[in-house]
Amino acid sequence: MAKSRHRPRLGVFKFSSCDGCQLSLLDCEDELLAIAGAIDIAYFPEATRSDDVGHYDLAFVEGSVTTTHEAELILDIRARSSTLIALGACASSGGIQALKNGAETNAFIDTVYAHPEFIKTLDTATPISDHVTVDFELRGCPVAKHQLIELVAATLRGRKPQTPAYAICIECKMAGNVCVMVANGTPCLGPVTHAGCGALCPGYTRGCYGCFGPKETANTAALATRLADHGADKRQIQRLFSTFNTGAPAFRDEAKRHE
């Protein structure tokens, strides 16, 4: 890459999350030096000591909004960023913590914490797009390394990243996996889940957990009917749809139908 080229200024921000998605950036290993050469990593607490100051060409936001502080901070980051990208299940659908949505938050706080008076939290865990305009969402819990690199490469070239919204099943068949649902009767969310992981779990003869959230035109009702035919009870189906993307409307609504 020509030295004279403008290196976009990147900020990496963490909201309520486990850090896994932003650590995926460090996991890029072989490509990490190329990434560091192509973009100016200006703020990334997991990797650098720099402070959060100024304007960003590119902001990667991990995590969901669960406190009033976070709800204010995301507005500030948005105002200082040209392009804002939500990374992972928490940022794009609320994450596993969205299980608290609709539940009694204060009851949880009283049960878990010795001094509940110090805890200040919202009643919901919500995706970044509920608060500000998001330019692109990269799915996954955590995001897939190859998709993160594609995202960076595409952003540098000013093109749309190639992250197809079709089912995991396409990746599964292209990998030559045997369908765990058809051959073993294993419950699998693959047919309603967004591609991206390369069908990781079915590749190890496990059912898909839906880490990448709902695919386009996900027919969760037809899948749930089939799971019931295979012997899954309402509680099992409800739990299957209530994990890392429990806040994604297609999964949340299917889970509700089985409460």
Binding site: C169, K173, V192
Partner: peptide, 26 residues
């Protein structure tokens, strides 16, 4: 489910797409 399994296992389905894959330094 519009999951596409039928087209993937069909021995005659032949459709493809093409994608340009670029490296980080272009």
């Amino acid at each position: 489910l519009n999951c596409a399994n039928c087209t993937m296992v069909c021995p005659t389905c032949f459709c493809t797409k093409v994608e340009e894959v670029s490296d980080l330094d272009g």
